[in-house]
Amino acid sequence: MAIGVKVLKRPVAQTSYLRATLKGMALTLSHLLRPKVTMQYPEEKSSTDWTISPRWRGTHRMLTDEQGRAKCVACGLCPQICPANCIKLVPGEDEEGNRYPLIYEIDEFRCIFCGYCQEVCPEEAIHVGVHYENSECSRDRFVYDLERLCAQTHPVSTLWDPSDPSGE
C-alpha cells in the first residue's frame, strides 16, 4: 500500500501554473534590469554597501617611532600570551640599557589572528592589521621578520568598537 500523505487543498489562485509562470518571468525580467550587487574586486575593494571592518584582524604590523625604530621593547609579553606560539622573540640590550628585539619573527601560517599580541603590548608596538591580501610564492615568505613587520603600511585593527567603551 502506498504511503498516505496528507495533501492540503490549496486556493485555486495558487494552483495556477500559467499565472505562476508569467509571474516568475516578470520577476526574472525585473531582476535582469536591477542594479547588480557584484563588487569588481581587484579594482574596487570597498563600496558604499561594504567596507572591510576596522576590527578586522589580519597580518601584523609593527609600529615605529620617529627615528624609524620598532617601538618594541622586547618585554616578552606577546610570545608569552600567544596561544599559537607563533612569535619568536630574542631580546637584546644596548649600552644605555634599552631593550630591543634582536630577532622578532611572526609565523603568519601559525598565527590564529586572535589579536592578543596587540592587546597585551604595553608599548602599542605590535598590531594586527586591516589587511587580507597575503599571497606569496613560497611558505618561507610567511614568516615575517622585524624589518618586514615595520615596513607594512596597512591600517591597524581597532580590536573593539571605539564607540562602545564597555567592549574594551
Binding site: A2, G4, V5, V7, V12, T15, S16, Y17, L18, R19
Partner: peptide
C-alpha cells in the same frame, strides 16, 4: 484553453487523488 490550464488541471499533483 488557458482557463482550463490555469485551473491547475495541467499537471497532476505529487500524490494521486484520494492518496490521503
Amino acid at each position: 484553453l488557458f482557463f482550463v490550464l490555469d485551473r491547475g488541471h495541467l499537471i497532476a499533483s505529487s500524490v494521486a487523488e484520494g492518496g490521503a
